[in-house]
Amino acid sequence: MKKKIQTVQTLLDALPFIKEFRNQIFVIKYGGSAQTEQKLKEKFAEDILLMYLVGIKPVIVHGGGKKITSILDRLQIPTKFIDGQRVTTPEIMEIVEMVLSGDINKEIVSLLNNHGAKAIGISGKDAHFITARPKDFEKFGYTGVIEHIDPAVVYNLLNEKFVPVIAPIAASNKLSHPGYNINADLAASKIAVALKAKKVIFLTDTPGVLDKDKNLISTLDKVSIEKLKNDGTIAGGMIPKVDACLEAVEGGVEKAHIIDGRIEHSILLEIFTTAGIGTQILK
């Protein structure tokens, strides 16, 4: 009986958050171990289903860099990175689109549908939902920077009760163009701003942003982030993530979250509990 009462108490604790977040859009950048380990995939799908059923409108943006690299290695196609971003040749762009739109996107859609959510997969090329320009064509090839997002495409899907699953590939306005490979973190941030989302959540393979003693920093803003960058506390792959978070909150998103996708039900723990489990970034 005691266990049953605790279960009810947990539900009651979540009730204020469910009320607050009902009918709000949450953009979730899905990556890391949560996207590759089978057990974590199942827990992720359960989290999205619960959000969906209580009236939150989840929008999934996914990456797939590790799988792209694996297939390029298998095909013996050389690939290189500059400043953490892949140089995208025409040959690599073909593989990027095949893996992101044709493989990973459909796997996520199938996973969510099998759990009872009504998911549908798109890329930025669909209805020219996302258009981009070259980041630096001489240096990066078909790696792009987003110029425009048409939120109506996603709003229409949400109004029809779909969970949109978005592959970060952008269209070009030029005829017969192969499109652009977009960093998934930056795509999630831009999409969250365009959709006027309540939150953007980044699933990673770290607990969040850590201080020099490896303790979790629960809350950050622009001033504290710049200070931590300058003293080297925030470095490497965490820099583009916090930059994406800042871009989102400065663009009107209420909060951005960096959480540990290796923890089961990490999304629910972050949004439906007072303490949360990761780092939240505020304006």
Rank of each mutant, 00 (worst) to 15 (best):
G179L: 08
K174A: 15
N159P: 10
Y180W: 10
K174M: 15
L186G: 09
I169Y: 01
I146Y: 06
V145Q: 10
F162T: 09
S189I: 00
N183V: 06
I146F: 04
I146P: 00
S176R: 14
I166D: 00
A167E: 01
K190P: 00
P168K: 04
G144W: 06
K174W: 12
H177Q: 06
A184D: 01
Y180D: 06
S172W: 09
I146K: 07
K190M: 06
S176V: 11
S176D: 15
L157P: 08
A171W: 07
V153Y: 08
Y155K: 14
I191E: 04
A152I: 13
Y155P: 05
S189A: 10
A187I: 03
Y180C: 01
N156W: 12
G144Q: 01
I182L: 13
A167C: 11
E147N: 07
N173W: 10
F162I: 13
N173M: 14
H148K: 14
N181M: 00
I146S: 09
F162V: 12
L157E: 12
Y142M: 10
H148N: 15
I149W: 01
V165W: 05
Y142V: 03
A187F: 02
A167V: 11
I182Y: 03
G179R: 00
V154G: 05
S189N: 08
T143P: 08
